[in-house]
């Protein structure tokens, strides 16, 4: 239990609308362990963003419990501790940058936490270095590219020294270059500092690079495992209208035509090697 960073137990969330109560999900159970990189896949409106907002007490469960490092998110006294433990990055970088200068924006969270001045400077320096934006520290955010802005937003969260970072479709508004920058930064964070990552996305190739993939459909989990385990369930994923990574799709079609190929060669090189081995 100790290495569970995030734990949801029988998590239920519903809200009032004009046409009565709307249930987003009921009795969800999920545990995210320290050091994991979890991709949450699913359609728009399947509840994945709502789930994410439960992980740092932006939303509180209407039923069940969510624990962050053992802290109950419903507890008011622990609110700041929970939020500094689980950092959150959103889709639109413009709407999460508070300050008109990069370094002042990164300093925003530690300032809120009452961190002493010398340490704020230190945290800002190291956060900017981690995301590779040190040279832009005195720039105005609105002059930066989308990928750079998103990296600033990540740095702003890193300055809290969080255990876990939840990213809600951080690459959805970015061009391919920006997406690559952000993905590299996220994975690097996990590898170097062991930061736990929850990545909400609808890009299969991003999910394929995570250590665990969870698929959500209509408020419940329909698959949960390593990318190899999840993406090989091609029929299941197609059944709910999700794509599979192109490598898997290729292998799947080849298998249907009678080739004896493994489905779990997710990487381009692995896939190529597997096909080459069969051809020989």
């Amino acid at each position: 239990m100790d290495d569970a960073v995030l734990r949801a137990e029988k998590l239920t969330f519903e809200y009032d609308t004009d046409d009565g109560e709307l249930e987003v999900f009921r009795d969800l159970d999920i545990t995210v362990k320290r050091g994991e990189v979890v991709a949450v896949l699913g359609h728009n409106g399947c509840g994945k963003s709502t789930l994410a907002k439960h992980f740092n007490a932006i939303l509180l469960p209407t039923g069940g419990k969510v624990y962050v490092m053992g802290m109950d998110t419903a507890s008011d006294d622990l609110l700041l501790d929970i939020r500094r433990t689980v950092g959150m990055v959103f889709q639109n970088p413009d709407n999460q940058i508070v300050a008109a200068v990069v370094e002042e924006d990164v300093a925003f969270a530690p300032e809120n936490l009452g961190v002493p001045q010398a340490e704020i400077v230190e945290r800002v320096d190291s956060a900017l270095e981690t995301v590779g934006m040190t040279e832009y520290r005195n720039h105005a955010p609105h002059r930066l590219s989308g990928g750079q802005k998103q990296r600033i937003a990540i740095a702003g969260v890193l300055a809290m020294r969080p255990e876990c970072i939840v990213l809600d479709e951080p690459t959805a508004m970015l061009d391919p270059v920006g997406r690559a920058e952000v993905m590299k930064t996220i994975l690097e964070l996990n590898r170097r500092d062991g930061t736990t990552i929850v990545l909400i996305t609808h890009h299969m190739d991003e999910a394929a690079r995570c250590s665990r993939v969870v698929v959500m459909e209509d408020g419940s989990f329909i698959a949960d495992g390593t990318p190899e385990e999840v993406f090989t369930q091609v029929e299941l994923l197609r059944g709910v209208g999700l794509e599979v990574p192109q490598t898997v799709e290729l292998l799947y079609e080849l298998r249907k035509r009678g080739f004896n190929l493994p489905l779990d060669a997710l990487g381009c090189d692995e896939c190529a090697a597997a096909i080459a081995a069969v051809m020989r």
Partner: peptide, 12 residues
């Protein structure tokens, strides 16, 4: 969205 992002960064 900004309000939520600020809360996430412990603004109080």
């Amino acid at each position: 969205e900004l309000a939520v992002a600020m809360e996430c960064r412990c603004y109080h």
